[in-house]
Design a protein around this nucleic acid. Sequence first.
DNA 1: TATACAATAGTAAGCGATTACAATTGCCAT
DNA 2: ATGGCAATTGTAATCGCTTACTATTGTATA
Lengths: 341, 341
Amino acid sequence: MNIKAVALKAKVSTATVSRTINGSATVKPETAERVRRAIESLNFYPDINARALGSGRSSLYGLIISDITNPFFPELVKAFEDVAVEHQQELLIANTDYDKARMETCVIRMLQRKVDGVAIMTSEMDDRLIEVFSRRHIPLVLLDTDVAAPGVSSVRFDYRIGVVAAIDHLTALHHRRIAFISGPLALASARVRATAFAEGMAQHHLLNRKGLVAEGNHRVDGGLRAMKRILQSKLLPTAVVCSNDLTAIGAISAIYQHGLRVPEDISVVGYDDIQLAAHTHPSLTTLRLPRTELATTAFHSLFGKRSIDRKPLPMGESHVFQPHLIIRESTGPAAQGPSSS
Amino acid sequence: MNIKAVALKAKVSTATVSRTINGSATVKPETAERVRRAIESLNFYPDINARALGSGRSSLYGLIISDITNPFFPELVKAFEDVAVEHQQELLIANTDYDKARMETCVIRMLQRKVDGVAIMTSEMDDRLIEVFSRRHIPLVLLDTDVAAPGVSSVRFDYRIGVVAAIDHLTALHHRRIAFISGPLALASARVRATAFAEGMAQHHLLNRKGLVAEGNHRVDGGLRAMKRILQSKLLPTAVVCSNDLTAIGAISAIYQHGLRVPEDISVVGYDDIQLAAHTHPSLTTLRLPRTELATTAFHSLFGKRSIDRKPLPMGESHVFQPHLIIRESTGPAAQGPSSS
DNA sequence: TATACAATAGTAAGCGATTACAATTGCCAT
DNA sequence: ATGGCAATTGTAATCGCTTACTATTGTATA
């Protein structure tokens, strides 16, 4: 079953079939209709590999993420897939596992498959690899990284605004001693949030005490351990802001284990708004990152730039999305007196 | 950059280059070495599309799942990807969203990309679609479905053994009134677990009371609502088994909201052992499904059958995996007297 | 009526690999 | 010397589609 069979059946040349499939304007409507009927009746689907080979375009988009089992990503993947499929494009997903070597093989895989564009949703991307794509005129979109180069766009969240909103919310509830649990500071994405917290606190003229800042790992266990460390301090915080929701879940756990309650003794704010955040106990006040919008924008940025002939690309754009505070049950008025462990 | 350039550089024909790349035994070692050096120095990666077109094999495997945001799947996806990449194969992921129409487009996408095999990890697959693959001699592996056909293998979990293990555990703790929250019974995968519960209870000569069985939706909110319904009954259960972990999380929520405690008043058992299960409050006693093994087995079943020439396939095999009870904090001794709402 | 041009459709040369088949070489047994 | 055979390599057809280029219309214009 190939295009020739269709051509035969519709009594036209293969070129006309191809043109019909690709919606070329130079096919007479009646002819096109005949071709379409032939396609229908033969149950024909063009071979995408042949198509890619012939046209130079693969209709494939790469999506590189750190770890699909991190609940931050599935929603992103799904949104990206939805919009890609809507445009008849396909998705190639690759996990780096936060590993440089794997990142390298991911990039090679993308090249071999001749992807039409790549979205890199992990901040651990070095410049050398970016150049690999650049040189081949493959559009790129990066998360949380601003690179000014042809064909390289960026999408970012304004983490600072999010943190400020969280601190606003907490100060309105009379919180003053606010702790922070960061992600693994080896990761740029985590550093960006840590910096945002420091700046947000400064903006509110609040002290960012040493004992009240701990490093987690963006997973539940790290949040738990970090919170335990914080609970060692003489002067306990009345609220804690976490670098992501999993960390917050861990922190809540630690607080309970310490015999305190959330939010009565300590309020907790997460970051991301993963699906689960609405269903924890107490449900999590958190900063929602609009991941669907992010994915959609990222895809369009790539799709818009896909070049038929691999010619030099236009300069990329930069998009910024605002986090949005979702108030749930894990935050409440600050505890009265200074409670101590 | 193509195979011709390599051939030129290595002073051989393109055929020899191709043979070297594919590890054909008929290339003299010294020649092969020279070719490899040329490939290295030119930084050449064969075009996979051309390769697929020429050879008829795409090195692509389809993975069809219901919903990537359901935490059951990411681990599966990851394991599958890991083993695929290890074998230099690629993964094409498709979400059906539990939707027949989307399932159809997924299948078409797979066909167009000329996948070498498809793993269908959602039980909502109708026979007509299976035949589409069968006719094209594309190996298939199905989850929880036993289809005896050439090239169609199946992987299953023995849900009943899992439920029996859970009931064993609960009866050892003197539980007698055990409730069950199922998944959406419209889904075969959920029905299979519901049936397993009924059989497990029968095996233990325990009553499977009407008021103590409710239908959820395999999500947190469904578990919550279902548990609320159960808590209406005059005679409360002392334990509840859930069709999956998210349901269990919802159930725990409902129990707390009802002023009761877990496990002191009611014990809760989940199913799946998603990553989060170890980090809830209380942490979840659950039945671990070996997803990594499942994915690995599924991949090998497909990879082993990939046919060079799309010739008739051998009969598929059937694999069964045992769930394993993980005891955590959400189960404890049965409450003494009959507690009533 | 001759000419130009737009609309439509066909011819055939790629795209970059794989692979059947043919060719060359060297070695051995006759 | 010579046919046979194994080992190695080359030639060229092929996979199924795209698309530059060419050919054929029909129609409007001079």
